[in-house]
Design a protein around this nucleic acid. Structure first.
Lengths: 233, 233
DNA sequence: GCAGCATGTTACAATTCGTAAGGATTGCGA
DNA sequence: TCGCAATCCTTACGAATTGTAACATGCTGC
């Protein structure tokens, strides 16, 4: 498993450099952006672990961006802002941010707060081989699903990759770009249809009603959401 | 599911009261302690969701306590401290604290930061998945509406975004500009008509009489207002 | 009422997605 | 090497979602 990925959005080059350097020295991968639109597009592709967002960007309202990120991405969100009023901090946090750092800041504290965010929520990763959801259990070490009625349903490697991706971020939007990234598909080709087919097959194995799937929802133009509470063992 | 439990450790009675009151009003259960030994014993019995710990207690070294809590309890830990040096904050966070608040603090910010910690711990999605209004219920976790007569009405992602926006601020004017922000529409384009169409489709799903909509009122020249009492679960 | 604009609705087209059918690839045993 | 089976991708076409254009309706101030 590679180093955690930190996405940085700030319009001041100096601050971008400072953050990227401090986080890089701490062993993280970083990606920096100066404009919100680029930033948001990149998020959908790469699914970073933590987002550092500077409020008060010129080209968009930062709080709306934070709200969207909180709803749609699984990343932890840390706001960096020059606005020091309590009310600013409260609304930022209520909109879904996980932390709020005031400028000027010390890079060491930023690194510490990023580490604190990563510590929590890092459940998956090591010996997790079985996941339960909605009466099903997926055994990745044996390549089988156990249906709620006890029936054994085998699944292939490709199907397992998709299922694992969903089970690792349940109730979160997973974009097609993220899937391609995770499943090693080259971009730009007609790999899209292959993706569809994998999903389709997985759905039939999960007893989904094709017209009205309960577990794997399609978000038109965006990706998929796996709608279930998942419990890894 | 009962209200989340917040354990508070502070040696100043005034601060204990202030925190307990603010958190109580926000809907949390609280338990306050003045000495670390009592506090630690209680933690083992009641397993709180969040611990608020004041450093600099007389009877023990606070950082050691934080470290033990981080290792042994599953609770989120928020340090409250009068020591404002960056180095203090960094070591507190490195030892396992999830957040670090400096005295003097505003109770509203403490509440917001407690909420932020609970959001991430709570599997995903913050629990806000079902809203009831006027006999309807909107299930955002299943992408369906349940009509007052029990009929199931599916809705798409775009429709759901609009509906969620209304349900999150009922009886309040929502301007078109706000919608564009929240729904991620690029500004300046002819996105206006698209907005209208979304509203129109949503209205038909909600059985609105086109000539006389009861739920989604148009405020000419300003925006829309959702007229219903909303109850989130 | 009328002019001028804001909003509602409908029909249509572009895009995106689902899946059945068939072909390529791989692995395995005879 | 050949045949067979399993797996996976591609093709092709139908279905669903969404935005846009065009037109209809409604609001506001004169």
């Amino acid at each position: 498993m590679s180093a955690p990925m930190i996405a940085i959005l700030d319009d001041e080059p100096q601050i971008r450099r400072m953050l990227a350097e401090a986080l890089g020295e701490a062993g993280f991968r970083t990606a920096t952006f100066s404009r919100a639109t680029e930033f948001e597009a990149a998020i959908k592709r790469t699914a970073p672990d933590v987002c550092l967002v500077d409020l008060g960007l010129p080209d968009r309202d930062g709080l709306a961006l934070v709200h969207r990120l909180a709803l749609e991405s699984g990343a932890a969100i840390i706001i960096i802002s020059g606005r020091a009023q309590v009310q600013d901090r409260v609304t930022g946090l209520e909109l879904g941010a996980d932390d709020y750092i005031i400028k000027p800041f010390d890079p060491a504290e930023v690194v510490a707060r990023v580490r604190a965010r990563l510590r929590k929520g890092r459940d998956t990763g090591s010996g997790m081989t079985t996941a339960r959801f909605e009466g099903w259990s997926a055994h990745f070490d044996r390549y089988i699903l156990l249906a709620p009625n006890g029936r054994e349903v085998p699944f292939s490697h490709a199907e397992g990759e998709v299922l694992r991706l969903f089970l690792e971020s349940p109730r979160r939007l997973v974009s097609r770009a993220q899937m391609q990234e995770s499943l090693g598909g080259a971009a730009g080709e007609s790999f899209d249809r292959a993706m569809d087919v994998r999903i389709s097959r997985l759905r039939t194995k999960l007893d989904e009603d094709p017209r009205n799937p309960r577990l794997i929802k399609t978000i038109y133009g965006a990706g998929y959401i796996f709608l279930a509470e998942v419990d890894w063992r």
